[in-house]
Every structure is written in C-alpha cells, then in structure tokens.
Amino acid sequence: MTKYHLTSAARLGLGTALATACLTGAAWAEADLEAARAIVEAHSVLPSFEAPGAPFDAASCMAGKRILSIPTSSAIPFVSGIEEGMVAAAEEVGFEVRTWQNQGQPTQWVQGIEYAISNGYDAVDLMAGIDPNALAPQVAAAKDAGLKVFASHHRDVTDETAEPNVDVSLPLSFSRVGEIIAAWIVTKTEGDANVLVIGSDDVPPSQPYWKSFEAKLAELCPDCKATYYNVPVAEWATKIQTTTQSALLQDPSINYLFPIYDSMSQFMLPARAITGRMDLPIASFNGTPFIIDMIRNGDVEMDVGESLGWIARSSLDAYMRDLCEVGDVPDELYIPFYIFDAANAETAGVPAELDKGYGDAHVGGFRALWGLE
C-alpha cells in the first residue's frame, strides 16, 4: 500500500485553504437548526384527534360480524398490545375481534387464515409485519370464500408494492419517523452529527425508514454524516453489540447512536461501556416501555412513540368502514408520533406501561366517530 505524506508547505497550504473555505462558506453549508427545532417541537406536544373520516353508526352495521386478527407474533409485547386494544375497542362497539395466537411461524399464519375460512368469519386481519404477498394462495382462498382481507402496520407509506386481494391496506409512515429523528439529532448536536445507524433489512419498512432519515439529515445538515449497518432480526442479540463496538473503534468521531427499532438499544449499551463511550446518546422509535424506562434512567436520550391504543382504533375504524361500506376508508394508519425524553418519560408510568403517556384524545374521538357517544 502506498502511503502519502504532506510536506510542511503542503500542510500550510491545505490549512490556509480550509480556513478560507470556512470564512467564505465554500466547503461547509450551515445546518438549518431552526427547521430542525420546528420538527422536534411539533412532535413534543400531546397528540390531538382529527377524524380520519365521516361519522357512522358502527354498532348497527357491525352487529354479528367477526374478524380474526393474525399478528406477526403474539410473543412481541408491542404487537400483543395492539391486539388487546383491538379486542377491547370491538367490545365497545359490540362485535367480535379474536386474536389468533402464534409464535411468528408462517405455518401458523396459514393455519389462522384456514381457521377463519372454515369458521365463517367475515374478515381476516394480518397485523404488524405479515406480508400478504407471502401468503398469496391463502389470501386468495379467503377472498374466494367471501372473506375480506386486511393488512396493517406492515410496510412504509412510500412502499407501492401491489397487494392483490387485500381489501384494506394500512401502511405506517416510518419515513416520517426517520425525518423526526434526523431533526432531533441535528438539533442536539447543533449541526455536527456523525451517526451510527443500526437497521434490519429483513423488516420491510427498514430501508424506506433509513433512507428518509438519511435524506432529511442531508437536507437539514449537509455536513452531517450517517453510516448504516444491517443486522437481521434473528441476529440482534449476537451482532448488534459487536457491530456497534467495531464501528466505534474504527471511527471515534461518532457522536450519536440510532438503532432504528428501540428494542435494539439494549444490545448497544454494552458496546458503549466496552469502548468507554457511555457519553453517546441514543435516539430510536416505537415507544416500548422498557426503553422509556431507560430514558428515565439516563441510558437512552429519546424515543419516538406510537400509541398502541391509537393504532388499534385506527385499524379497526378502517376495517369497519370497509365492512359497513360507508366509504372514507383511509389508505394509511392515522397515528400521531410523540417524542419521549427525560422531560416527560414519567408520564408513561414508573415503570412505563404500554400505551400510557399519549393522552386519551383518541378514545373519545373514535367513540364519537362511531356513534357511541
């Protein structure tokens, strides 16, 4: 390998050039801190409710109807929390939503669809990560049997993948989350960010989410830097720590950690300790309770949360609109995003609880929309 050395004169010339560039703005563009702060502030206030459609008499049109909801895995607290919210909201309206318990195996999802068909359900719901295209024969069979097929919280709004035979598809704006976190990091580093990003490309929204973060970071702070590493979900426990540790040793100038799903954070903490970088802040997304506890304890700086109850009611609202043929069926989940940090982490409970800390505007809002009050 050839090595290059600068002479004293060359170093002096380079230093002069860099100084001139700093003064003239030729090499560095100033970060737009005002725009970044505006995005952060907009997501630091409790969400208010805005009706996603016209009111309708949900109790009358849903009487006697049944939906079987198949989550990606019943073992994931975040997902099971959404399911519990859907079951409870359906009881308020007066119809049945049943959760198909499973451990995340595709064969179990297939069995769930077959059960819905053979037991006369009106609809089957693929919730929180199941790709309808991966179950195309079963989805087609459900449609042939007269069932509606729904899918929710499974891809980003920018993903235009066709989903044949799906009656209602409700993607989530993971890309908006990427923009919020980019704005937070630019704000907190005052336009001097070098971010280590850990993602999982086997989760469909991961790339749109990462790309939106990267684009917004470049827009708000042209001289900020972000480096992305892919760690598949099955390898989180074994590879996130070593990947983080290696990256920190290779680039000591890294000053922010961004695991794109907040449960990844727990595997980054040992790498911070081993490399002597406990000062490195962490920002992420999901609002998982134990991560909000980490915010309260000072181990994580920020988490963008999404209310599980809001997800449940938003999903159910769209499904009922389709089953009742009332129109106004949304084409994405109506979920406001809310920033948790040291200032408000306690509002989620001590210890933090699923779906606590977001206020309750969505509860009364959807009840009124459904004609229940």
Rank of each mutant, 00 (worst) to 15 (best):
M86L: 15
E84F: 00
N165H: 15
I82L: 13
E163A: 14
N102T: 08
G120N: 14
V157E: 05
G81M: 01
P164G: 14
T99E: 13
P52Y: 05
I82H: 08
R155F: 10
G120R: 07
V110S: 05
W109C: 01
G81Q: 05
D122S: 09
E91T: 12
T158M: 06
S173Y: 06
D167Y: 01
G104Q: 09
A128V: 11
I76F: 03
M127I: 14
Q138E: 15
P171W: 09
A88Q: 14
S69Y: 11
A136C: 05
S80F: 02
V93K: 00
I130D: 03
F174M: 09
D57V: 07
E92T: 07
D159V: 08
V124W: 07
R98Y: 01
S175L: 09
N165S: 12
Y121V: 08
P132K: 01
W100H: 11
V149A: 11
K65P: 02
P106E: 02
F78A: 09
C61Y: 05
L126T: 05
A141K: 10
E160Y: 03
G94V: 02
H154S: 15
P55V: 12
D144T: 12
N119V: 04
S80M: 09
T99K: 06
F95P: 00
A63D: 14
P137N: 09
V97R: 00
I76S: 06
G104T: 09
I113T: 03
R176W: 15
L135R: 00
I117P: 01
P71S: 12
A88L: 14
P137A: 09
G53W: 12
P71W: 12
A140R: 08
A59Y: 04
K143H: 13
Q138M: 10
D125A: 12
A134Q: 14
V79K: 00
E91G: 07
I70L: 15
V168W: 03
S60N: 10
A90P: 03
D159W: 08
E96R: 06
V97H: 00
P164F: 10
G104M: 05
E92N: 10
R66F: 13
E160C: 00
L170P: 02
N102R: 10
K143W: 03
R176C: 03
A89L: 04
D159N: 12
